[in-house]
C-alpha cells in the first residue's frame, strides 16, 4: 500500500511538472505588449530593459529551467511584476490561500452533510414524492450554469435572510452564502450519484439474501446498500474538488473574498506569468490530490481492490 502511494505520488509529480511546463510555455507565447500597461508610449530601450528585468529576454527553455531550479531548490514560485511590483508570489499567496482552503473545505463538508442524506432518502423512497422533488432539484442545478444560481443566491438570499453582501473574514455570517454557493453543485452531485448507486445496489442478489435472513429493509439500507453505494462515490471526489475550485473563481469575486480563486482571472488578464503559473499549479495539485484520495478511499472500503499486486484467492 505504502509503495503504491509513493509510486502514485511520483507519477503525480510528473503530471504536475508537465502541466506547469505547458502553462509556462503558453504564457511566454503571448504578445509582449501585455506586460506593459503603457506599451505604446515606451521606447524600444525601456521595453528591452523591462523584459530583461523580468527575465523574459532569455530563450524559453532557459527560463523554464531557471523557474524549476528556483522551485526545487528554494521553493520559490517566482516573482510577481505586474499584480504587485517585485514581490515573491509565495508571499502574495500566503495570505490568500488559507481563506480559499477554508471556504472550500467548509463547502465540501456542507455538500456531504446535505448531499448524502438527500441521496439516501431519495433512494429509499424511489419513485415517491421526495424522489421526484429531489430529481427536479438535481436536474435544475445541473442544467443551469453555475454563474446563474450563484448570482440568484446573492441577489435574493442576501435580502431574504438579511445577510451582508460583502465578505468579511471576521464575521461568520458573511461566510454562509459563499460556502453554500460552493457546496450547491456538489450537493446535487453527491445526491445524484449516491441515489443512483443505492438504487443499483438494492436490486442485487445479496440484498435478497439479507431479506431472507430476516433483516428489516431499514437495516439492509444502512448496513449493506449505503456502504456499498458509497465505494464508487470515491471516483467522484476529484470532480467535486474541481467543482469547488472552479466555483471559487466566481464566488470569490462575487463576494469580494480576498482568496485565490478570484485572483486567477485577474492575473491572466494582466499577464502576470509568475502568478498564473503558481495558481494553476496549486489548482492542478488539488485535482491530483483528489484523484489519489478517491482511489485510496475506494481501496480502503472495498477489499477486492488491492494495489499491492495479486494475492491468491481461494
Amino acid at each position: 500500500m505504502l509503495k503504491y502511494i509513493l509510486k502514485r505520488l511520483a507519477r503525480s509529480l510528473l503530471t504536475l511538472l508537465i502541466i506547469v511546463s505547458i502553462v509556462f510555455i503558453l504564457m511566454r507565447k503571448m504578445p509582449i505588449t501585455g506586460y506593459f500597461p503603457n506599451y505604446d508610449h515606451m521606447s524600444q530601450e525601456a521595453i528591452a530593459n523591462g523584459l530583461h528585468m523580468m527575465g523574459l529576454d532569455l530563450p524559453v527553455h532557459q527560463q523554464l529551467l531557471l523557474f524549476l531550479k528556483g522551485l526545487f531548490t528554494k521553493g520559490s514560485l517566482g516573482i510577481s511584476y505586474v499584480y504587485r511590483n517585485q514581490v515573491p508570489v509565495t508571499e502574495i499567496l500566503a495570505t490568500k490561500w488559507p481563506i480559499s482552503v477554508k471556504l472550500g473545505l467548509l463547502g465540501q463538508a456542507l455538500a456531504l452533510l446535505i448531499g448524502l442524506p438527500l441521496g439516501t432518502v431519495m433512494a429509499q423512497h424511489k419513485g415517491g414524492w421526495i424522489d421526484r422533488f429531489g430529481t427536479g432539484f438535481i436536474v435544475t442545478i445541473q442544467a443551469l450554469p453555475a454563474a446563474v444560481y450563484f448570482l440568484l443566491i446573492q441577489l435574493y438570499a442576501t435580502e431574504a435572510f438579511r445577510l451582508p453582501l460583502a465578505f468579511t473574514y471576521e464575521n461568520p455570517k458573511t461566510w454562509i452564502l459563499p460556502v453554500f454557493s460552493l457546496a450547491l453543485p456538489n450537493i446535487v452531485y453527491y445526491a445524484m450519484w449516491l441515489r443512483r448507486y443505492m438504487v443499483d445496489e438494492s436490486t442485487k442478489d445479496y440484498v435478497k439474501l439479507c431479506q431472507i435472513k430476516g433483516m428489516s429493509s431499514r437495516a439492509i439500507m444502512f448496513k449493506h446498500v449505503f456502504r456499498n453505494a458509497f465505494v464508487p462515490l470515491g471516483q467522484y471526489l476529484p470532480t467535486t474538488l474541481l467543482n469547488t475550485v472552479v466555483g471559487s473563481i466566481y464566488v470569490e469575486s462575487l463576494y469580494s473574498i480576498p482568496g485565490m480563486g478570484g485572483l486567477l482571472v485577474d492575473v491572466i488578464k494582466r499577464q502576470d506569468n509568475a502568478m498564473v503559473q503558481a495558481i494553476v499549479m496549486i489548482f492542478a495539485t488539488v485535482g491530483i490530490v483528489g484523484l489519489i484520495l478517491g482511489d485510496i478511499m475506494m481501496s480502503l472500503l472495498d477489499p477486492r481492490i488491492s494495489f499491492t499486486g495479486k494475492k491468491g484467492g481461494r
Binding site: K208, I212, D302
Partner: peptide, 13 residues
C-alpha cells in the same frame, strides 16, 4: 432460503 447463484448472493464488501 438458499438461492441459485452463490456468486452474487453475498455482499462483496
Amino acid at each position: 432460503m438458499i438461492m441459485q447463484d452463490p456468486m452474487t448472493s453475498l455482499n462483496p464488501l
